[in-house]
């Protein structure tokens, strides 16, 4: 009896955690960049898509270059380095270039106009990625197949999703430590309160600004890297991720790390259990949740920034 319940519930919980991981990596960047730099980027989700596309290229290139010559273990390590380090780095560089050229002119605009301008940016990024990777679904599951599956309470489960969840948990803990314990973290928090005073205190706010921005974009890129070995990527998916990113932002509260963690978990569990038990309503529930949170606690679960 217990075994049966476990075999039914455990896969759903693990699915929920994996979903939550991707959502956390997606939503946190959006949230900290908005909360601390006051820049609302509708196009943020496109960095996750970019991360996934770059991962596909990295995986394909690595496999074709060394796949035949080294053993599975070595190949896996090389792939992991590529996904966890190289992909976020490339996405960050792209993000930084865009920051210099496209985003700098719109920092001064009101939130509303930032949304509109970055709506334009997302259209450009989508077509840019289409130009490079084509319009067809891109898929590369080698890292996942190398890791294989694990038998859990009578059902098989892909290790990749567990690995991705673990990586995300470590990152969440690190970020938490960073903002609570380190000097840069404290400065960033102070900047969220008042940019000018921090500047007057002799701190190079622009450099802090860039660091926070790069972390946010890199996390989205990493989200794409962890996502791809499990599922394919197509242009057009970014509009879906845009909505989910904002769901995390709104439910968790603007600029709150705790909020992003909580919101990602909440959405992950709602979607996972919702899809299992009430498949008709799974997607609708997320938006009901989003509207409900905004009505009951407009600042989000953990937000304290005035709505």
């Amino acid at each position: 009896m217990v075994a049966q319940v476990l075999s039914q519930q455990v896969p759903i919980v693990l699915n929920a955690l994996f979903l939550a991981s991707v959502l956390f990596l997606l939503g946190t960047g959006l949230s900290i960049i908005y909360g601390m730099l006051n820049f609302l980027n509708l196009a943020h989700a496109a960095f996750l898509i970019l991360g996934a596309y770059v991962s596909a290229t990295v995986i394909t290139e690595v496999v074709s270059a060394v796949g035949g010559t080294v053993g599975g273990g070595v190949l896996l390590v090389v792939l992991l380095v590529g996904l966890l380090v190289v992909v976020p780095a490339i996405v960050s560089v792209v993000g930084l270039t865009m920051e210099r050229t496209l985003f700098k002119p719109i920092y001064g605009l009101e939130d509303d106009y930032q949304l509109l301008a970055t709506f334009g940016v997302i259209l450009m990024m989508e077509d840019g990625m289409k130009f490079i990777w084509g319009g067809q679904p891109v898929s590369a599951t080698r890292p996942s197949t190398l890791l294989g599956g694990v038998e859990l309470f009578g059902s098989t489960f892909p290790l990749w999703t567990l690995f991705a969840t673990g990586v995300t948990a470590v990152i969440a803990a690190t970020l938490y430590y960073f903002f609570e314990e380190t000097r840069l973290g404290k400065i960033t928090l102070a900047m969220a309160e008042n940019d000018e005073i921090v500047g007057v205190a002799g701190i190079d706010t622009r450099s802090v600004h860039l660091k926070v921005y790069v972390i946010g974009v890199g996390l989205a890129g990493l989200g794409g890297a962890l996502y791809l070995p499990n599922a394919s990527m197509t242009t057009g998916l970014s509009l879906q991720f845009v909505i989910l990113a904002f769901a995390v932002l709104v439910i968790g509260g603007l600029g709150s790390l705790k909020g992003a963690i909580a919101a990602a978990l909440l959405i992950g569990f709602v979607r996972s259990f919702g899809t299992y038990y009430v498949p008709q309503l799974a997607l609708a529930i997320v938006f009901l949740l989003m509207a409900a949170v905004m009505l009951i606690k407009p600042t989000g679960l953990f937000g304290d920034i005035k709505a």
């Binding site: 039914q8 896969p11 759903i12 699915n15 994996f18 979903l19 059902s155 999703t161 996502y227 599922a231 394919s232 197509t234 057009g236 998916l237 879906q240 979607r271 996972s272 259990f273 919702g274 899809t275 299992y276 498949p279 008709q280 799974a282 997607l283």
Partner: peptide, 20 residues
């Protein structure tokens, strides 16, 4: 009988339900 969103990236819960 399962209907999944279109397009969809996550079939895990649907598959769990089918497995059951």
């Amino acid at each position: 009988s399962r209907f999944t969103p279109f397009p969809n990236e996550d079939f895990s819960s649907t598959i769990a339900a089918l497995n059951d």
